[in-house]
Design a protein around this nucleic acid. Structure first.
Lengths: 111, 111
DNA sequence: AAACCATGTTAGGAAACCTTCCAAACTTGT
DNA sequence: ACAAGTTTGGAAGGTTTCCTAACATGGTTT
């Protein structure tokens, strides 16, 4: 279930992201404004990104270059996420069926 | 051959490292002065660390807590690295033997 | 044409970092 | 025992990095 460790840890400041992606800070902040990316914030308010974010930004940059608008990119992303959640739901439903089939309980062992 | 990608990329600033390790910035800089850790630098001079560096710092912190001096820690690290290089050398020697055995060349196909 | 999109740029201010120095409480070497 | 070294904190002063807000521009939709 989502191997975290590193890839998803938000530890990279915007300047480094700029260097890693080749985008301008202006662009990076704008894509956030358009809800394509969601950095965390430090106590003082500085943005913090993960390597996943960096990868996503590169994908975004490619689409933009192909003339796709942030608006459209956002839709695609929501759709993709919905697919993911679908899978999640399906998995849970199957799990539920199995539990029913074998009469398992969720609590810490029924009496 | 050292799977890079993320773990070894120097992208984390000292403030984040402080938060991740619980060490003070003073300590982190001091361990660098004692040649236990080697951050890269941004164009402007800010230190940049990798996740590997963070892990190493935690190990260092543990040893320090056990009363080991930076001096000793450094020796241990050099020894450990020597062992690594030994392995590296052995591997290359074996590779060399294989090459000799099968009459392989290193250049782009001998005439 | 009016509205929107994507980016650059500027300005002023705050956060984060940097080096250097002094201090203090220990620990070690002689 | 005493000098020398270790480890850490903290302050000062300076530079870099980041933040938001606003205005400008050229291109695209509506």
């Amino acid at each position: 279930m989502g191997t975290d460790s590193y890839k998803d840890k938000k530890v990279i400041t915007i300047g480094i992201v700029r260097d890693l992606t080749g985008l301008s800070e202006r662009q990076i902040r704008y894509y956030e404004e358009r809800k394509l990316i969601f950095p965390e914030r430090s106590a003082g308010g500085s943005r913090k990104y993960s390597f996943s974010d960096v990868e996503l930004l590169v994908e975004i940059a490619n689409k933009i270059e192909d003339g796709v608008q942030t608006h459209e990119i956002r839709k695609e992303m929501l759709k993709a996420q919905k697919r993911e959640n679908q899978g999640e739901v399906r998995r849970k439903m199957i799990q539920g069926q199995l539990n029913a089939q074998f009469g398992l309980r969720k609590g810490p062992a029924s009496k």
